[in-house]
């Protein structure tokens, strides 16, 4: 366990997102990255009462380390039940570190059409970026020791596990 309260974090994120939603001409579309990002997005989606269904992204086919780690044996279809062309998207993931997952996710999103914009929401920012990608909203900023990892467990309840490698 960590001392981060996921539910509280989500509430804070929803608070941060609300004011900008009120100003938009039409509500944005929300997309979660599997698996943890989808769990979080489900809760945010509900808290913000977004009218259109939630999208789910599986970035397995877009990872940049295929030649090193191969194909994810548990890949599942991505599911975007809406047209993204010209729409504002909110992309949700659990933990951001190198930024490579987000790069892969953005590459995948663009294969569905050209969105008007993409904003990134993450629960925890661990630093250690390898690409110029930053979240627009983040619940917590944390730094871990070199031998430590953080993992979101769920779907019910959602909690963060700190584990050694």
């Amino acid at each position: 366990m960590t001392d981060i309260d996921v539910a509280q974090c989500l509430e804070r994120l929803a608070e941060q997102l609300r004011p900008q939603l009120a100003e938009l001409p039409e509500p944005p579309l929300m997309v979660g990255i599997r698996t943890g990002g989808v769990w979080l997005a489900q809760r945010l989606h509900q808290a913000l009462a977004l009218p259109e269904p939630l999208g789910e992204l599986d970035i397995s086919f877009y990872r940049d380390d295929f030649s090193r780690v191969g194909l994810n044996p548990r890949v599942r279809p991505s599911h975007l039940p809406f047209a993204t062309e010209g729409r504002r998207l909110i992309l949700v993931d659990d933990i951001i570190m190198s930024g490579r997952t987000i790069r892969a996710a953005m590459n995948e999103l663009f294969d569905y059409g050209r969105p008007e914009s993409i904003q990134l929401v993450t629960l925890v920012d661990l630093g250690g970026r390898e690409l110029p990608i930053q979240p627009d909203f983040t619940g917590e900023t944390l730094s871990l020791g070199p031998q430590q990892r953080l993992k979101l467990r769920g779907p019910e309840p959602l909690w963060l596990e700190r584990c050694g490698i």
């Binding site: 086919f61 295929f66 890949v75 599942r76 279809p77 569905y112 059409g113």
Partner: peptide, 23 residues
């Protein structure tokens, strides 16, 4: 079964506006 499951994910790719992945 894994081949069939993976193929299921590729079916979804075939329904996109850009039907191509960088694998």
């Amino acid at each position: 079964t894994r081949i069939l499951d993976t193929a299921d994910s590729f079916i979804e790719v075939g329904e996109r506006s850009i039907k191509k992945v960088p694998l």
